[in-house]
C-alpha cells in the first residue's frame, strides 16, 4: 500500500460506520434471528464447527477459559420470584428455558476494530468485521473490548494438538478457510468464504448477488428457519424486509420497540445503548409456553 494511496483514500481506511457520506454499496451483510422460532437445538453451532474448521477444545480447556465456539447458544432460565434475592430453588427449571444464538454481531462501529494495535481487524466496504489471521499478533485487546464476548483466542496450535482432529478427520476440514495457528484471534465471519465465492461467480456474470445466493452455514442448517442472512441494501431480500417490518434502523441506538410500549414490534439489537451498531437483529420471543 503506497503512501500516496493511503493519503488519497484515507477516509476509506479504518472507516467506521455509520456515516452518511459513504453508504454501503452494493452490499451490507446483515442477519436477523427470530428467537420465537429458535428451539436451542444447537444445529447452528455444529454447522459452524464443520464449516469453519473450529477445533473442539474439550471440557478441560473450556473450564480454563479457552473456549472456542463462534456460534454459541446462550440459555436463560426463568427465576421463580424476581423480587427475591434468594437463589433459585432449582438450578435448571423443568421448563421455560429461553435461547439466544450469539455470534459476532459484525458491528458497524466495532469496539474491537479501534483497539487493534496492528490493524488486523478492519471494517470491510460490505459491512463485515474482517479478521486477518496472518496480521494478528495476539494482543487479545479486541476480545477484551468486545461487549458481546464473541472473539476466541487460539491458546494452542490446534491443528497439531492431539485429539483435536484425529488423522482420519483432517479430510473433512474446509479447504476454503485458513487453519488458524497458535496465538491468533478468531471469530464468526458471516461465512466470508461463501460470500467471496458468491461474489466471484456473479462478477463473471456482471451483476450483484441476489437474495438467497449466499447462505451462512448456521442459516442453512437451522431446522426452524430462525436465522435469516442477506444483503440489507437489497430491498428484495428477506433480511431487509424483516428489519423494515420491525422498524429496526442500522444507524439508530434505540429502536421503535423500546420507544413505545405495546407497539407490537419485536426487533431489537443487543446492547444497543453502547452504540456499536450491530448487524444482527433479534426478534424477541412471543411464546409463553416452554418447549
Amino acid at each position: 500500500m503506497s503512501v500516496t494511496n493511503l493519503l488519497e483514500n484515507w477516509s476509506e481506511f479504518r472507516h467506521a460506520h455509520p456515516v452518511g457520506d459513504v453508504p454501503h454499496d452494493p452490499y451490507k451483510w446483515a442477519m436477523s434471528i427470530d428467537l420465537d422460532a429458535c428451539t436451542g437445538c444447537n444445529a447452528c453451532s455444529v454447522a459452524c464447527y464443520a464449516e469453519n474448521n473450529l477445533p473442539v477444545v474439550g471440557k478441560e480447556k473450556y473450564a480454563a477459559g479457552h473456549s472456542m465456539h463462534w456460534m454459541r447458544i446462550e440459555r436463560y432460565w426463568p427465576v421463580d420470584d424476581t423480587t427475591s434475592l434468594e437463589p433459585a430453588t432449582r438450578e435448571f427449571p423443568d421448563q421455560g428455558a429461553q435461547f439466544l444464538p450469539m455470534m459476532c454481531q459484525q458491528c458497524e462501529a466495532a469496539p474491537c476494530e479501534t483497539v487493534c494495535p496492528v490493524g488486523a481487524t478492519n471494517h470491510t466496504p460490505d459491512g463485515l468485521n474482517s479478521q486477518a489471521y496472518n496480521r494478528c499478533v495476539g494482543s487479545r485487546y479486541c476480545s477484551a473490548n468486545c461487549p458481546f464476548k464473541v472473539r476466541y483466542f487460539n491458546w494452542y496450535d490446534y491443528p497439531t494438538t492431539e485429539n483435536v482432529w484425529p488423522a482420519e478427520m483432517t479430510q473433512q476440514l474446509n479447504p476454503d478457510i485458513t487453519l488458524r495457528s497458535k496465538g491468533v484471534m478468531e471469530k464468526c465471519t458471516f461465512c466470508v468464504q461463501r460470500i467471496r465465492a458468491g461474489e466471484r461467480s456473479v462478477k463473471n456474470e456482471g451483476r450483484v448477488l441476489k437474495d438467497g445466493e449466499v447462505q451462512t452455514a448456521c442459516q442453512q442448517v437451522c431446522p426452524t428457519g430462525a436465522i435469516t442472512f442477506g444483503n440489507l441494501i437489497d430491498s428484495e431480500s428477506k433480511v431487509h424486509q424483516q428489519w423494515k417490518a420491525q422498524r429496526v434502523e442500522l444507524t439508530a441506538d434505540e429502536q421503535e420497540k423500546d420507544k413505545e410500549a405495546d407497539s407490537g414490534l419485536r426487533g431489537y439489537r443487543i446492547l444497543e445503548e453502547l452504540r456499536a451498531y450491530p448487524s444482527v437483529m433479534y426478534m424477541e420471543r412471543v411464546r409463553e409456553s416452554a418447549i
Binding site: A132, N134, R135, I177, T189, Q193
Partner: peptide
C-alpha cells in the same frame, strides 16, 4: 480489490 478480507480469511 484492496480489502484485507478479499484474500485473507
Amino acid at each position: 480489490p484492496n480489502d484485507c478480507s478479499s484474500c485473507h480469511y
